[in-house]
Each structure stands twice: as C-alpha cells, then as structure tokens.
Amino acid sequence: MTHDLHTLIGAYVLDAISDDERREFEEHLDTCDACAAELGGLLATSARLGASSEVRPPEALHDAVMAEVARTRQLPPLERLSPEAAAPVPVPTDQTVGVVVPLARRRPRLLLAVAAALVVLAGSLGGALAVEHHHAATLQQQFEATAQVYAAQDARTTTVDGGGGTLTVVTSASLGRAVVIPRSMHAEPGRSLQLWVMHDGTFRSAGLMSDGDPVLATDLPSGAQLGITSEPEGGSKKPTTPPLVTVDVT
C-alpha cells in the first residue's frame, strides 16, 4: 500500500487524481521522506511542461487583473525568515517556558512571556487549519521567531491605548524585532488596519492587522517607532491617514 501511494506521486504532481486521493497522498507525504525528496523536482518538471505553453495574453486580461488586485486584500504575511536570518539565534523553544529564573523580579515578565507565547501558539494553530500542510514549517518558524523575542534577555512589554482598543508590544532591541498584538481594535467596514515601521521619516509596511492576532515586525532599526493606520481595505503602499497609535520600540 505504501509503495502504491508513493507511485501516485506522478499523478499527484500532474493534478491527475481525485480530491480524496490528493488528501490521502498529502497525509502520506508527511511520513514519506522519499516522496518529499522527489516532490520538488517533479513539480518543477511539470511546471516546465506548462511554461513551454506560453501564449500572448490579451491586454484586457492585464486590465482586469490589475483592477481586481487594487481591490483585493492580501493574506496577512507570515513571518518569512531567510535561512541565514533564522540561523544566528537558535533559541530552543523549551527556553521560553522551561528556563530556570531564580530572580523574583524576572517572574512577571516570564509569566507574561509564557501567556503571550500561548496566545501566539493558539493563533498559529488556528491558522494552520486553514493552510495546506506544507505551510506548517513556515508557521513553526514564525512561532520560533516569535518565541525568540519573548525569550530575549532584553524583552520589554509595552501596552498603549488607541484606535478604540489596546496594543501590546513585546520588543527585543537586540533582535531588532517586536511582536505586536492588537486587542479590541477593529477596522471600519471597507478599511484595514495596517502596521508600519517608522524610522527617520520613512515608512515600511509590516502587514495588516486583525484583532487578537500577533504580528511580528522584523529588522527594526534603532530609534524606530511602530504605528497603526486605517487604510483602504487590503492596505496601502504608504500610510494615507495619521496613525491611530504609535509606540517607540527601540
């Protein structure tokens, strides 16, 4: 049976199987290292079959796509560390909850960190149900990157009111990262809340926010601020309204 399933990889890659068989095969993929190793090359091969069929698209397609893109909200970004960026700070997840901290004054922060990590974990798990299994690794990375912030020696928690709710920000200056959790902050209908990294008069989007979902902001320069603005649904390239709330992060 296992051999049978492995053979199905060709039909899977070519989308030549039923939905039920696809699900079965994807479950099998999780336990079949040989399949996983073969999958990348075969997917790239089938894409070559497709690439060789290139045609000249009509201009109407361009206009229709660009118009729809302008009114389509993007999925919130997951943390996307490059392998190099992920490598330098290998903090075992255990450290977040298991480290022995004798100093009483560290306790509250540790408890907060544990609680916050659980919030993040719950968020990640909720999201994991909605995405295909092969995103699990990305989620895991996001979780680890977030846990690194909580576990950092210089982790600092700030809570500010604004935008109709509160914003909790856990920052590690040494990592240049912050975890931002909005509470009871809701965008108006047809609008999105967007998080920005603001520094020296420049703005960089750190993604769209939805209430209760932690967002990880990375590559924070010294002296940066985080700010949230209300933007047209799907977000903007640059802030178009004054910030509802700002926080100094480093």
Binding site: A44, V69, Q74, L78, V131
Partner: peptide, 26 residues
Amino acid sequence: QEVLVEVWRTASRFDARRGSGITWVL
C-alpha cells in the same frame, strides 16, 4: 485572472526554499 489575483493575495505564503517562483505560480 483568478490565478493571477490569487498570486497577489497569497504572495506572503510563497517560500523560496520549497521551489522556484515560476513552479509555485504554474
């Protein structure tokens, strides 16, 4: 059109370590 808008919508889920961009899109 659906596919191209989907690329826009889900671009944050693209992972270059899993394969090339063109493989992902096609």
